Simulated scan of single mutants.
Amino acid sequence: MTLEALIQGCKRKEANAQSELYKRYSGVLFGICLRYSPNRTEAEDNLQDAFITIFTKVEQFKEKGSFEGWIKRVTVNTVLQKYRKKRVFEIKEESQIEDVGEEEVFDEGFPLDFLLKIIQELPERYRLVFTMYVMDGYSHKEIAEMLGISDGTSKSNLARARGILKIKVVAFKK
């Protein structure tokens, strides 16, 4: 089935089209959910929530731009909405913000499962900002808008996430 036919089938709420869409994209979307979730079980729940949202809102896809890009954005927004409701972000005064350098935390080859594990162990507010900034390339302004926080809070949470990760990386090297 072509992508266009698949999308049209999903818009008509055809179960076979929805099943095929799930088979094609569940792997890549699960990877996104893993990065944003504290554990595999929650990532699985987030994936299911994302597909429910995708199937519900597929009519909104206007075939401008990439469909895969659209479903990735829907997935990220679905997961972030869950965390926004939890109010996991602490507000910091601008004077408390640490300077965030552009150096990468991981300068050597580390096992992927180790990296995912230590990222998932971060407190939610740090994990979300770290994932959005470092792994998905959002700016602090975009992160602030998406999470309903200030640019300064985004920068502060990124600095704290990097600090925690550096400590874990150093401990792993020893």
Rank of each mutant, 00 (worst) to 15 (best):
T2Y: 00
L3H: 05
L3V: 00
E4F: 07
E4S: 13
A5L: 05
I7C: 13
Q8T: 04
Q8V: 10
K11V: 01
K13A: 07
K13S: 09
A15Q: 11
Y22N: 01
Y22A: 03
K23D: 09
Y25S: 01
S26K: 12
V28Q: 14
V28T: 14
I32L: 14
I32R: 01
Y36N: 10
N39P: 04
N39W: 10
T41I: 12
E42P: 02
A43P: 06
E44A: 11
E44G: 09
E44F: 06
Q48I: 03
D49K: 12
F51I: 03
F51H: 09
I54K: 06
K57L: 05
V58I: 15
E59Y: 07
E59C: 08
Q60R: 15
F61I: 06
G65Y: 05
K72D: 01
R73Q: 09
T75Y: 08
V76F: 02
N77T: 08
N77E: 04
N77F: 12
Q81A: 14
Q81T: 02
K82T: 01
Y83L: 06
Y83N: 00
I91W: 10
I91Q: 13
I91D: 08
E94W: 07
S95R: 14
Q96F: 02
E98N: 10
V100K: 10
E103F: 12
V105F: 05
F106T: 08
F106V: 02
D107H: 05
E108D: 12
E108T: 02
E108V: 07
G109T: 08
L112N: 10
D113V: 06
I118S: 01
I118K: 04
E121Q: 15
L122G: 13
E124Y: 07
L128M: 12
V129N: 04
F130H: 13
V134T: 12
G137P: 04
G137Q: 03
Y138H: 07
Y138A: 02
H140P: 02
K141S: 05
K141F: 11
A144I: 10
G148V: 04
I149V: 15
S150P: 03
D151A: 02
G152K: 08
K155M: 13
S156L: 04
A161P: 09
I164N: 09
I164Q: 08
K168I: 00
V170Y: 14
F172P: 00
F172C: 05
